[in-house]
């Protein structure tokens, strides 16, 4: 019965999954595709970047112009540190919200709960489905990178590309699991979407602005975006510490989701 919930969760989202795969594939493809132009005009871009406020640059994952113009720095700035991470996180939050709170909002939860399916199994199956779908999108990005790597002469190693997309997926999974947790605890779709998106936006800006604002440097260390930025997997490969932190946070959120959903009244 666990696998039925899992399969249904995947099947019902096949359309949006395909859109995210295409969208993220295009995003990364275009990013990598314009890199030769950036490389050729490096001097101009360096000047341009140096004239930009530091905070704005740090929003792209690095405040160092030279670093931003390396292949790793450039791709990282577009994919892991900004739009790529945000888009994948939005997908994760939509899945995490739909998993419990969305189902209660549509009043269909009682149909499932009236079958011999433990509440815990519903949460865990939907989590597994969310992780799988994020994994599929991350894998699509990896494929685009692997194909483009020799063509554009990016010089990424395969382990680093795998590490980068694995950690990007983990970042999205952290926020998706947050949505799952809020949904498990409250069962309210609006609250769940609000809290998960709010935390995403807040942590994104805390991380970005910490370069400029001293007092944000403490909180910055608590943001998943910082963990990914610090790990810089496209250059450094998989960092165990940051991977474990993100995994641990995810586990805590999933545990909260199960605990919350098992103990409360369900909206039917």
């Amino acid at each position: 019965m666990l696998s039925s919930v899992y399969r249904e969760a995947l099947w019902s989202r096949r359309g949006s999954l395909l859109l995210y795969v295409i969208g993220m594939g295009l995003l990364v493809g275009i990013t990598v595709g314009v890199y030769p132009t950036v490389r050729e005009g490096a001097d101009t871009f360096t000047q341009l970047l140096e004239s930009m406020p530091q905070g704005l640059m740090s929003m792209f994952g690095s405040s160092d112009a030279a670093e931003l113009l390396t292949p790793a720095g450039f791709v990282n700035s577009r994919v892991n540190a900004s739009i790529g991470a945000i888009v994948l996180t939005v997908f994760a939050i939509s899945l995490g919200t739909a998993a419990i709170a969305g189902e209660e909002d549509r009043r269909t939860m009682d149909l499932i709960l009236a079958t011999p399916t433990p509440r815990r199994a519903i949460v865990l199956s939907r989590f597994a489905a969310m992780a799988s779908m994020i994994g599929v999108v991350a894998f699509a990005i990896l494929v685009v990178m692997v194909v483009a790597n020799p063509i554009v002469d990016l010089g990424f190693s395969l382990p680093n590309m795998i590490a980068s997309n694995f950690m990007l997926a983990l970042l999205a999974l952290v926020f998706g699991s947050l949505a799952l947790a809020v949904g498990g605890l409250t069962g309210k779709r609006g609250v769940t979407l609000g809290v998960a998106s709010g935390v995403t936006v807040a942590t994104f800006f805390i991380n970005g602005l910490a370069e400029l604002v001293d007092w944000l440097q403490g909180p910055q260390e608590l943001t998943p975006f910082y963990w990914l930025q610090r790990a810089n997997p496209l250059s450094k490969g998989l960092t165990i510490e940051d991977t474990l932190i993100m995994l641990a946070v995810t586990v805590v959120f999933v545990a909260l989701a199960v605990w919350g959903f098992e103990r409360r009244d369900v909206a039917v």
Binding site: R106, R107, T108, D110, L111, L113, A114, T115, P116, T117, P118, V268
Partner: peptide, 16 residues
């Protein structure tokens, strides 16, 4: 869970 295996239920506000 064991009870749910033995019953059939029709919700009053049927959402599907």
């Amino acid at each position: 869970v064991a009870i749910h295996g033995k019953i059939g239920y029709l919700p009053g506000e049927l959402a599907m």
